[in-house]
Design a protein around this nucleic acid. Structure first.
Lengths: 159, 159
DNA sequence: GCAAATTAGACAACAAGGTTGTCCTTGTCC
DNA sequence: GGACAAGGACAACCTTGTTGTCTAATTTGC
């Protein structure tokens, strides 16, 4: 029963949304409401060294204005802070706060737990295979999480 | 090298976006510009029997207002038509036009071609495995394509 | 057979995450 | 020192959603 290409695409999306919706819901259940995948993704990039709005934009393949908006939200939530750069007066240096790191840490734990569930379901070897092949197919192409609007707005049941 | 759960999610998204961006770009190259995945998805549902805005909303797990907006766009493009229902004066019956079916047909062909590429890359058996496992994991849960905003706005290279 | 409840659809206001464009300020380079 | 590049702020707008409210038509229940 060879599936169609469109089915394949839907399947991949379904997998992604399963994980992400579950993770977002669980994060909300733990008290971190209003954390969306975009935020997690952005914080990760900041923590990894994207310490200015422009740089963050570049890393996420998004305009610097869009990055600035995301940063504003993260700042409101207290997940990142901005202070002026002493070396370059144009920049505002970004810093993930302890609270932000806490979210990051918990998010990671949740995702890992979900991955473990999958592993138990189809077997560790098969999951590794799946990841390996997907990696080969997607290649090194940067993944744009962000497109206008989107991703995990309504949440299903908690994990 | 056991990957993290977050990586897995990103990998799935990456796969999806690879396929969809390529398909959208190729469709645009063939002259069907401004066709987005949402449209394809919606037309498929209409063709499959969701012949009113409310019903379409239900099938796509989306509010009927959102469905109505999508329909309005499809109608503008000439991909679907609406005429009044003789049996129920409240309804407007939806119909996919020949042009709409043409898009559907070409979209399917493109997706199948992409799937074939993947098959050649990792082997038919492996791809079947991947699909099988993903199906098991995602389960019968309905997949919501739609979340505010999104999905394939900017396009990479044509196929 | 008629009132009450449901359903279809229209319209409006708003949210989230993007986009472009313009502008000012601060660094960098020759 | 003057031209250009880069960071960031602000504004207007797009797309795809969301609620909420309203009217008209159909069903259901007594």
């Amino acid at each position: 029963m060879s599936r169609s290409g469109a089915d394949l695409a839907l399947l991949l999306l379904g997998g992604f949304r399963s994980l992400v919706d579950a993770a977002t819901a669980e994060l909300a259940r733990r008290g971190y409401e209003d954390v969306r995948p975009v935020h997690d993704f952005a914080m990760r990039a900041i923590a990894a060294g994207a310490d200015s709005a422009s740089e963050l934009g570049r890393r996420l393949s998004v305009s610097k204005q869009a990055a600035a908006k995301t940063i504003a939200v993260l700042q409101e939530h207290g997940y990142v802070e901005r202070d002026t750069d002493l070396l370059d007066a144009r920049r505002k240096r970004l810093r993930v706060t302890p609270l932000g790191f806490e979210v990051l840490r918990q998010g990671e734990a949740i995702f890992d737990e979900l991955r473990d569930q999958w592993e138990r379901q189809i077997g560790s070897e098969e999951l590794a295979n799946l990841e390996r092949h997907l990696t080969a197919l997607v290649g090194a192409r940067p993944i744009r999480l962000n497109a206008p609007g989107w991703i995990a707005q309504d949440l299903g049941e908690p994990v």
